[in-house]
């Protein structure tokens, strides 16, 4: 069996849609039963779906590059799918951040603020609508019978006749053109990427080192308070990073450093989730020693984040030269 990136995308793409349906149902059940515990679990599920949506979006761009120039595929349909996918993916990121924030608040105040859950409910419903649209348009790429008529090679030629892609706003093409043609955007995004990195690593360095016993007199909840700044740093880097990716996807999709960077980001995201919600670190008062498990988790966190810096720096050098 020859499993390529197209197959990976075709399998993985079900996670955000099916996942959102499951998570939204859980949230509604939690509301109906007034079950606070279930609400928290659901927010955790939203967070993990958001983390997974990043590599799934990337796999879509990789698949796009892999099937480019095939006469039996409509480039216009692919483009429409990509444009909705980009917005759905961005909104999923917002849902993930809002869910994380709710869990962070719940950890600090031992109750989940209503407005955060309401925001997650609203945003995730909107995201589901966009994801469903993305899925439908994605399905039409290989199932033209869904549109009621067969797609032929001559249709492909016709559909692609206007060689200039439609402008519009918030389309992948328009965004890529903006990043490439506006002289300062790429440079400014790089600078933002470095600043976000310092914020993210600075906070997580302090938090993880505390667990490892370095600044032991600091109670863990005091460091926990800084975590939103780490998430802010991550958000800055996700946004600036996606500008690079959308502008030049072929620099990344076949790049082993990028693959490892994404894999590390996913596991590091789960690690931050652990720091946010679990008891074993939260209970650490001034001078308290952490047990073995949190120490292993903290050491892995440091390894992962510096690993992400490593893969990021190696992007233009390992495997592929820009």
């Amino acid at each position: 069996m020859n499993l390529n990136v197209v197959h990976v995308h075709l399998i993985a793409n079900h996670v955000p849609t099916v996942g959102l349906v499951v998570a939204l149902s859980l949230l509604l059940v939690a509301f109906a039963k007034k079950d606070e515990e279930l609400k928290r679990i659901t927010l955790g599920v939203f967070f993990v779906i958001a983390l997974l949506t990043l590599p799934i979006y990337i796999s879509g761009s990789a698949a796009d590059i892999a099937i480019k120039d095939r006469p039996d595929i409509s480039a216009a349909t692919v483009r429409a799918h990509k444009d909705v996918a980009l917005v759905a993916f961005a909104l999923m990121g917002v849902v993930g951040a809002a869910s994380w924030f709710g869990l962070w608040q719940a950890r600090r105040t031992s109750r989940l603020p209503h407005w955060t859950v309401a925001a997650v409910l609203l945003l995730s419903t909107l995201t589901l609508v966009l994801m469903a649209r993305t899925a439908t348009l994605g399905g039409e790429i290989r199932h033209p019978e869904m549109t009621g008529r067969a797609f032929t090679a001559s249709d492909a030629a016709k559909a692609d006749e206007p060689a200039v892609p439609e402008a519009g706003w918030l389309t992948t093409t328009a965004l890529a053109a903006f990043v490439i043609n506006t002289s300062w955007v790429w440079q400014a995004s790089e600078t933002v990427h470095f600043i976000g990195m310092c914020l993210l690593i600075g906070v997580l360095l302090a938090v993880n080192l505390r667990i490892l016993g370095r600044i032991k007199r600091v109670p863990f909840p005091a460091l926990h308070r800084l975590l939103p700044l780490a998430i802010l740093g991550f958000g800055l880097n996700a946004a600036s990073g996606m500008l690079f990716f959308v502008a030049a996807p072929d620099q990344y999709t076949q790049n082993p450093s990028f693959f490892w960077k994404l894999a590390f980001i996913f596991v590091a995201g789960v690690q931050v989730f652990y720091l946010t919600v679990f008891d074993k670190t939260w209970v650490l008062g001034p001078g308290d020693d952490a047990t073995v498990t949190p120490k292993i988790v903290a050491a892995s966190g440091l390894f992962l984040w510096f690993g992400i810096v490593f893969w990021g720096t190696m992007l233009p050098f390992l495997g592929l030269r820009f």
Binding site: G202, L205, T313
Partner: peptide
């Protein structure tokens, strides 16, 4: 140089 940057600016930011 990049790892050094995260250490210097990261600690200073905190």
């Amino acid at each position: 140089h990049t790892v050094g940057l995260t250490l210097i600016v990261g600690v200073n930011l905190v």
